[in-house]
Computed example of a mutant assay.
Amino acid sequence: MSKRVQAKYKINRRLGENLWGRPKSPVNKREYGPGQHGQRRKGKVSDFGTQMVAKQKLKGYYGNLTERQFRNLYAEAVRRRGDTGENLIGLLEQRLDAIVYRLKFVPTVFSARQLVNHGHVKVNGRRVNIPSYQVKVGDVIELTQRAKEMALVMEAGASSEREIPDYISFDGHKATYIRVPTLSDVPYPVQMEPNLVVEFYSR
């Protein structure tokens, strides 16, 4: 479980953006940062600061991954052929908890991680309880019968807050991971800049 589950909106306020595009985010009412010094005038941000914010946004969006988890994904992105930034986005979107969130099984990435942790998600017919599990193209993802009857899951599925992206096929019961998306395919509510994340780690 993420250490930030109870304070997830602090990430929003610290970064000054509604990371998940949710109507209940406090950033919609208070665009300044948290704490007694949150309303201080911000100075000019350095290149390092800009890169750091880009990293924190991307890391925070996926449930505030630990630095070790995120750095390991970056190392794998570097190892693969092609554009490192695009590879990083692809690896993040292949995480099982990210796919559960994209399928609207749950309302937040944090609850997606919890749903997987509790063994409510199956991949190719087998239960998987590891949120960071890397789903492959062609894999079939579905919920257990017990999970389908949860109020949280039913409410999330009926919500019009988000749409299921076209790189995942869903027939209402089972989903198939069709292809690894690029940055332009992923429906981020805010602008993500993986190129700045690459610059941050390659300093």
Results as ranks from 00 to 15, higher is better:
residue 88 L to G: 03
residue 128 V to D: 08
residue 15 L to I: 09
residue 66 T to H: 08
residue 185 D to H: 04
residue 77 A to E: 11
residue 171 D to S: 06
residue 142 E to M: 03
residue 119 G to D: 04
residue 142 E to H: 01
residue 133 Y to K: 07
residue 178 I to H: 00
residue 169 S to F: 14
residue 28 N to K: 13
residue 183 L to E: 02
residue 33 G to N: 06
residue 9 Y to L: 07
residue 199 E to T: 13
residue 194 P to Y: 07
residue 19 L to Y: 02
residue 10 K to R: 15
residue 140 V to D: 03
residue 106 V to A: 13
residue 157 G to Y: 00
residue 103 L to E: 07
residue 63 G to S: 10
residue 57 K to E: 11
residue 195 N to H: 12
residue 203 R to P: 02
residue 23 P to Y: 02
residue 202 S to W: 13
residue 176 T to H: 00
residue 190 V to T: 06
residue 86 E to P: 08
residue 4 R to H: 14
residue 17 E to I: 15
residue 164 I to R: 07
residue 201 Y to K: 08
residue 75 A to S: 15
residue 173 H to I: 13
residue 114 Q to P: 03
residue 20 W to V: 09
residue 135 V to N: 05
residue 42 K to C: 00
residue 184 S to T: 10
residue 143 L to P: 04
residue 4 R to Y: 14
residue 97 D to E: 15
residue 48 F to T: 10
residue 37 H to E: 15
residue 10 K to H: 14
residue 30 R to N: 10
residue 96 L to G: 05
residue 114 Q to E: 11
residue 139 D to C: 09
residue 110 F to T: 12
residue 9 Y to I: 02
residue 100 V to A: 11
residue 79 R to L: 07
residue 82 G to I: 05
residue 139 D to S: 11
residue 31 E to N: 12
residue 117 N to F: 07
residue 96 L to W: 03
residue 80 R to N: 09
residue 147 A to R: 04
residue 185 D to E: 11
residue 122 K to G: 00
residue 128 V to H: 10
residue 40 R to I: 15
residue 158 A to L: 08
residue 89 I to Q: 04
residue 75 A to H: 14
residue 172 G to Y: 02
residue 45 V to L: 11
residue 21 G to C: 03
residue 2 S to E: 07
